[in-house]
């Protein structure tokens, strides 16, 4: 089990609707839904709201890398277009 936690801000849609996401737990471990021995698992959570406040994804290592690169590429394009607000400006 390899696991890291990161604080994030945003919202996620769980089984009871949208909730405030405060953290992302990233692990490389046995998946629940995917047919593989190990997967890159991301849980978007809000611990204050209990274990059920969770949006889960399980990805192959290759997919996870492709996702990271895509996120970075989209953010770079958004930054170039001047769309990313600085926290102080909000």
């Amino acid at each position: 089990m390899i696991v890291k936690q990161v604080a994030v801000e945003g919202s996620g849609k769980g089984t009871s609707g949208w909730f405030e996401v405060r953290g992302a737990n990233v692990s490389y471990d046995h998946p629940y839904g995917m047919s593989a021995e190990h997967a890159l698992n991301i849980d978007f959570v809000n611990e204050a709201q209990g274990p059920g406040a969770r949006v889960a994804v399980e990805l192959s290592a290759e997919s996870a890398r492709a996702l990271v690169n895509t996120i970075l590429a989209v953010l770079a394009q958004a930054e170039l277009g001047g769309y990313i607000e600085l926290k102080a400006e909000r």
Binding site: M1, V3, Q5, G23, N25, S27, D29, Y32, N41, D43, V45, E47, G50, P51, G52, R54, A56
Partner: peptide
Amino acid sequence: HGTPEDVAAKVRA
């Protein structure tokens, strides 16, 4: 408490 998967995900984290 929650579904076994949600609770286990919390423990894993």
